[in-house]
Simulated assay, not measured.
Amino acid sequence: MRRAGHFALQLDEMTDVSGEAQLLAFVRYKDESDINEHVLFCKALPGKTTGEEIFQVIDSFFKEHDIEWTYCTHICTDGAAAMSGGVKGLLGQVKKVNTEIKWLHCIIHREALASKRVSPELSAVLDDAVKVINFIHSRPLNRRLFQTLCQESGTEHEQLLLHTDVRWLSRGKTLLRLYELHNEVYVFLKEHQHSLAVVFEDAEWVARLAYLADVFSKLNELNLSLQGKESHILNMYDKVKGFTKKLELWRQQQVKPQLPFGPLSDPRPKLAP
């Protein structure tokens, strides 16, 4: 890497399963006629996850391995203040040692943030879905009873998936699983006299749930396609641009359902691949 000269960094601060803050760094650099990329390091953040402490971890690693900041041309992070802050953030600290460095906002993180902005009607459906999942999945007795119901019904899946905002893939998977088991969920909520059982009797609510499941599944596919080795801004731009054109096509094809179906039928609109 030192022989290659200039390089770019991608940084992500996260919390592991033990609750410890970790800083993960990826590096990309030119090696003769090829572009190499790999994990540079993964180090624990000892104190607060501030821009100064993040900089100290990276700077210590650079000094230990005799890497000059002047050769770092670009840094890609999320938009958190600790990363992008121009004074106390990581960017501000790096600018003190390399004024020419360029900062980029991670395209996947930006897309994930944009996908959180949904209409109030769809947001209400998402909130109800999370409440239903929490009622069934977060209580051991309910989870066992629901699993038994699914086994007796012969369904492909026997459990719902919990939703977490920390993992951006969870939303699409959670909604899709809920839709696939919405018949069993309706029966379970009805047996337990839960107030949200009535939403599954509302064909329009079920249609919106199906719509969200399909859209977020497509977003998951997009997010996964933007990752991986040898990804660069040109093919990422093409994929995002193509996806926005698909969204416009789906919007034009969308027709408000006439609600001819009951609460336990399949109202899900089919999205073109």
Rank of each mutant, 00 (worst) to 15 (best):
M1Y: 14
G5W: 02
H6V: 12
F7S: 08
A8V: 10
E13S: 12
L23Y: 07
I35C: 04
F41S: 08
P46Y: 09
G47C: 09
V57S: 05
D59H: 15
K63H: 12
E64N: 09
D66A: 08
D66L: 07
I67R: 02
T70D: 09
H74A: 13
C76Q: 05
T77W: 04
D78P: 05
G79E: 12
G79K: 10
S84Q: 12
G85F: 06
G86S: 12
K88P: 03
Q93S: 14
Q93D: 02
I107H: 08
H109D: 07
K116R: 13
V118E: 03
E121N: 01
E121W: 00
L126H: 13
K131M: 05
N134G: 04
F135L: 14
S138H: 12
S138I: 01
L141E: 06
R143V: 10
R143H: 15
E156A: 10
E158G: 04
Q159D: 10
L162A: 13
D165L: 09
D165W: 05
L178S: 04
E180L: 06
L181T: 03
L189S: 07
A197P: 00
A203F: 11
E204F: 10
A207N: 07
L212G: 00
A213H: 00
F216C: 06
K218F: 06
G228Y: 12
I233V: 13
M236F: 04
V240P: 03
G242I: 07
G242W: 03
W250P: 01
R251V: 02
L259V: 09
G262Q: 09
P267E: 06
